[in-house]
């Protein structure tokens, strides 16, 4: 028997991922903007599936309406509504993807060792702790660390690109 929630989840997740990819790789600014709006809309739907209806409404009003209207006005004001956006070179995309995958493996191993589980079973700590009342910040700590390390890595990668590829193709 197919669960309706699962069907909704897969539909929303697919549209969300496609929209996020569209934000990053769309060739025109207005397409990127439309994908951005879709990302906000369908992420609100995902929040709704997670029993966070208030959060979904809050984000949709604040980001989907307020932020998108503001962005639209800015794009019209500075007349780059139809600005062609070249996608970065394939080498850069491949290098960045490889770096992110390597980073993902390292963060996976880090979380695995941090909680003493075997690789592939490190989510068990959530199942074990969820029986009791949990201190939410306890097991979000390592995820915070991972996020901060990722941001630092992004800044480093950007700096490497900026210093090495100054004379490469221009984007917009």
């Amino acid at each position: 028997m197919v669960n309706a929630e699962a069907v909704y989840f897969y539909i929303y997740a697919l549209i969300l991922i496609v929209s996020a990819v569209g934000v990053v790789f769309s060739p025109r600014m207005f397409l990127s903007f439309c994908a951005f709006f879709c990302t906000l809309l369908f992420s609100s739907c995902i929040y709704g599936l997670l029993n966070a209806g208030f959060m979904a409404l809050f984000q949709f009003i604040l980001c989907g309406l307020f932020l998108c209207i503001m962005l639209m006005l800015i794009l019209k004001k500075i007349t780059i509504w139809t600005l062609p956006l070249k996608v970065a070179s394939v080498r850069k995309i491949v290098l960045s993807s490889v770096a992110l995958v390597i980073f993902g493996i390292f963060s996976y191993l880090y979380v695995s060792f941090e909680f003493g589980g075997v690789i592939g079973e490190f989510f068990d700590f959530i199942k074990e702790k969820s029986v009791d009342i949990v201190d939410f910040s306890d097991f979000m700590f390592s995820i915070h660390l991972v996020i901060i390390i990722t941001l630092v890595m992004c800044v480093m990668l950007r700096n490497i690109y900026l210093t090495k590829n100054n004379t490469e193709e221009t984007d917009d």
Binding site: L16, I17, A20, V21, V23, V24, M29, S32, F36, T39, L40, C63, L71, L75, L83, L85, V87, A88, K92, I93, S96, S97, L100, G104, T150, C154, L157, R158, Y161, T170, D171, D172
Partner: peptide, 24 residues
Amino acid sequence: LFIVGMLGVIVSRNMLRIVMSLLV
């Protein structure tokens, strides 16, 4: 989503797109 957003931050050169990737 996190990886796609980070990829956007790394490979984009347009400021608006970098900020939109950060929101992702």
